[in-house]
Design a protein around this nucleic acid. Structure first.
Lengths: 186, 186
DNA sequence: CTACAATCGGAATGCTTGTTCCGGATGGAC
DNA sequence: GTCCATCCGGAACAAGCATTCCGATTGTAG
């Protein structure tokens, strides 16, 4: 059983790391995280063997939340709206969360072990939206993830404000919609 | 007048820097650039007062080439094709050139001094394509640059191969085209 | 060819980073 | 209250970085 102070400090470290990493991404230093958390650097290393491990813990947590959100939307009445809303949410999120973006970029959303089945969850949203005729049938997961990742990266780097985000995603979404006349895939 | 060996070394440094920075981006170290160039680090500093200055020299050079290319395409017979070709070229380029992408991301394509009028050149391509009815009239420079930068960032980070690039840009381009029925802006 | 200023290489400097270590503090079982 | 395994803080260490400096070298004007 973990001692009470250890558990408390673990929470503080995770909190501080989330804050600092959101701002500085992978470039954040352990010293600063420790300072924000109000603990010594040694305390961090007691819980997380390495900087990467700390990052991974946070990224996995965020991934899990994103996967959960996708799960909720998987049963929405309007699959098209659900799909586009999810896309927008992730991009809006990443404007503020540099870790997530760095993680998407470095480790890759691509199938990294540990991360829950976010890919599967997104695929469900895509398939349902396609069946409902809200998204072209000929876009695959690869292109979708490429577009999603691209939007997240740019939103982060250039600090897209809401207006720019809306207008830019509008173009992408138009490209994702079926050409008029394309039949819904039953 | 510059001594002959100094001029030769300057060229070597620029070459090496282009190579190394293309691979490692801003994370590349001066030592490695010096090694690849076959000179001492001191030699680099004789020509470029700082690491940033060296980067800037290379980025400006690339920007100039991109602006030139845009200039050529500005008088193409098919403004729509010219526009989409230019977009594709830049993205394909950035898959290989990490500096460019870092520069776009960090310094920002956005109006940084020194960089020639690449923004103006792109705007010309856009306007002509819109007049020709190949691009929606309601997309502005801001969204266009956002999309361009997004594609470059993602292409670099995930090493888009040609197939993925083609399919992903196809979606974006579809979003940029006018909805059927939208009139060309004379 | 000579002489000297321009240039060179790379060791040295000073800083930042991730990680380790350990003397001292402390939670909690008895 | 006692006691010890656990945990804490932060100094210390090693590695890497950009940048500076200087004795040795070399282009070139005269």
């Amino acid at each position: 059983m973990m001692r009470a102070d250890a558990r408390r400090n673990r929470a503080r470290v995770l909190d501080a790391a989330e804050t600092v990493l959101a701002r500085d991404g992978l470039a954040a230093s352990m010293r600063e995280i420790a300072e924000v958390a109000g603990v010594g650097v040694g305390t961090i290393y007691r819980q997380f063997p390495t900087k990467e491990a700390l990052y991974q813990a946070i990224v996995e947590d965020r991934m899990r939340r994103l996967a959960d959100r996708a799960g909720e939307l998987a049963t929405a009445e309007d699959p098209g709206a659900a799909f586009f809303e999810y896309f927008t949410t992730i991009v809006a999120d990443s404007t503020m969360k540099k870790v997530l973006v760095d993680a998407l970029a470095v480790a890759g959303i691509d199938a990294k072990a540990g991360s829950p089945d976010i890919k599967g969850a997104i695929e469900t949203l895509l398939t349902r939206a396609q069946r409902a005729g809200a998204v072209r049938g000929d876009v695959g997961m690869e292109e979708l993830l490429a577009l999603l990742s691209a939007a997240c990266l740019a939103a982060q780097h250039h600090h897209w404000d809401e207006g720019l985000r809306t207008r830019t995603l509008a173009v992408v979404f138009d490209g994702l919609r079926p050409a008029r006349g394309e039949a819904a895939h039953v």
